[in-house]
């Protein structure tokens, strides 16, 4: 009996979906738009992440050592810095490399190079370039360097304090952008869900009389609700397929543009994360359809 009933429910859902084409199409349209919003949010989050990551990469602090600092002491300090969880990477630039860089940077500045030659000795100290995971972690790293007495004798200066203002401001911008992005995402998702829910509720409101007749004929709740829930599944499947197809030409068109502007090619991002995005859209589409149908029918099952 269970199998027969399930078969009948699925058949009824397919037939209803086909016969109420206008209603089905409008439901599919609204769910599709919701899924397009979801997808766009995924893309814009990826773009935002990439932009913020680039910004973060540009921030670092440099530790300048005195000219007579021993290489072993510097490398030991590097090692202890690397053991910090906040530290992402530490780059060591030796005195010789610093000189070479300096020469390269002043290739066309003959007077400076001549002055350097005149000195005979290498006037530049070694440096450590420290990159933290998050921009707000530089302060504690700088503090560590200042308080560490064994290393403070060899450290000439830490440029965090010169850059503090810029780093702080950037930290604020990044965290604000992330927060605003999250809130906007949340609001858009909530609006889309409400609109979808109401459209499906309206579609089922049209069938209100039908539901009461089915109840009067003695159909069980499950048997009345079944086809509507399956129709919800159909809305989800068709809409997610539609959204996925629409994203193909759109991301292709925007791909090179976003790569130039934001450093991430949305078309490539779409292709590499296709199954991930498919799963998100399919699951949320089906969930939205089923959940809305289930709730909407429940209201009319109390005859």
């Amino acid at each position: 009996m269970f199998i027969t009933n399930t078969k009948r429910i699925i058949k009824a859902a397919l037939v209803n979906f086909w016969r109420n084409k206008t209603v089905s199409m409008s439901a599919v349209l609204v769910v599709s738009i919701t899924l397009l919003v979801f997808g766009s949010l995924i893309f814009s989050n990826a773009a935002l992440d990439s932009v913020l990551l680039q910004l973060k990469d540009k921030v670092d602090i440099n530790v300048y050592f005195t000219v007579d600092a021993g290489e072993e002491d510097i490398l030991e300090l590097k090692k202890s810095l690397e053991s910090f969880p906040e530290v992402e990477s530490v780059e060591y630039v030796s005195r010789e490399m610093a000189l070479e860089n300096f020469r390269k940077n002043h290739e066309n500045d003959q007077t400076t190079l001549e002055a350097l030659d005149e000195l005979g000795d290498n006037p530049l100290g070694a440096t450590l370039n420290v990159q933290a995971n998050e921009t707000d972690q530089y302060e504690s790293i700088a503090k560590f360097l200042g308080e560490n007495s064994s290393s403070s004798s060899i450290i000439d200066k830490v440029n965090y304090y010169q850059n503090k203002l810029v780093i702080d401001r950037l930290t604020k911008i990044i965290s604000n952008t992330e927060r605003v992005g999250f809130v906007v995402t949340l609001i858009l998702i909530i609006i889309s869900i409400i609109i979808t829910f109401n459209t499906i509720r309206l579609a089922i409101y049209i069938a209100k009389e039908e539901i009461s007749v089915m109840m009067l004929v003695g159909a069980s709740n499950r048997y009345v609700r079944g086809p509507f829930v399956i129709e919800g599944v159909l809305y989800g499947i068709i809409s997610s397929a539609l959204a996925l197809i629409i994203f193909l030409p759109v991301t292709f068109y925007l791909g090179s543009f976003t790569e130039k502007l934001l450093g991430v090619n949305v078309f490539e991002y779409y292709l590499t994360n296709f199954f991930h995005i498919l799963l998100i859209l399919l699951v949320s589409g089906v969930f939205l359809g089923v959940f809305s149908s289930y709730l909407a029918v429940r209201k009319y099952l109390k005859v």
Partner: peptide
């Protein structure tokens, strides 16, 4: 049931 044929209107009662 407006979206069901005469046959289906009757068969629905039996299915139920």
């Amino acid at each position: 049931l407006p979206h069901k044929t005469a046959y289906e209107n009757v068969s629905f009662a039996m299915e139920a």
